[in-house]
Design a protein around this nucleic acid. Sequence first.
DNA 1: ACCGATTGTGTGGCTAGCCAAGTAATTGCT
DNA 2: AGCAATTACTTGGCTAGCCACACAATCGGT
Lengths: 159, 159
Amino acid sequence: MSDITSPELPDAAGEGPLSYAIFQLARAHRGHAAAMLRAMNLHPGQELLLMQLFDHDGLTQGELLERVGLDHSTVSKSLRRMQDAGLLTREPAAHDRRVMVVHLTDAGRDLKEPIADMWRSLEKISVRGLTADQVQAFIGWARVIEKTVRDHSRRPPAE
Amino acid sequence: MSDITSPELPDAAGEGPLSYAIFQLARAHRGHAAAMLRAMNLHPGQELLLMQLFDHDGLTQGELLERVGLDHSTVSKSLRRMQDAGLLTREPAAHDRRVMVVHLTDAGRDLKEPIADMWRSLEKISVRGLTADQVQAFIGWARVIEKTVRDHSRRPPAE
DNA sequence: ACCGATTGTGTGGCTAGCCAAGTAATTGCT
DNA sequence: AGCAATTACTTGGCTAGCCACACAATCGGT
């Protein structure tokens, strides 16, 4: 339906516009998010961590990275920068001094509504061109693709 | 771990799983591409530039960045690293010594088939969970979302 | 011709994100 | 108890990607 024909795309290079579409979509989406986040002195990715903390203050770093799915080093560095920015604190847990418990500061909590607004705005814009059903289908398929790709990443490429 | 199914997602934080789905899909997809590219000593993003050159050797840096849509500084640095790796050459054009003409070396050309294979493989895997119609619909909607977001990025946020 | 505007690239500086290696604390096995 | 394995996190090193600034070559108007 509609025009999926698409005039110029790197067809000649490969014949898979799906990967290309994912790449371009993610870049545009991320770019727009970055622009909105900049107004709050945040960087893309940080809002995901903060959103987890808004709902579950006091999470450990490990629980945090499990929820967002990023590399532990990425989370560590990102949290450090946010700590330097005064948005949160990190202290070793009493019962296990390896784990770092993350708590929001007042400044961090103040970002809850702005981030929620920005998130809603981003969502509203992203969804504008599609019907609700299409959006739901899109999300479902995105998860299917993600899962498929992830499963293949785990497995050794013994294909 | 193991079950990253979909039970808990940051619903409480915002109610827009679309943005989250895009983010996670892109990350998984990019990660898988990165793993395959690593075998060729490439980094994600470089294959896009190379694919353009496979079909249009002798492009200028400006034409190249226009096709992939990245920032000129990103392209500049990425090309420099690929030049250092011996994959391509950059020389100022005769008629306009500002523009840099990019040419593949033999080593660069040798990557054409490996990259095409990798791209096809990535595509095949990504598509595995969906029907052909679903894939086409997904791509079409992805482009719609991308366009919508991009249009809103251009406009000042005078909403 | 001249000099300001524009164009095409390069560089610096920042964060995101990954992998690999290192460190400290806890657990577990003997 | 003691010591190896595991766990939680940190650090270093690399590239991608952006923005802002700098620079050289070309274009344009007078």
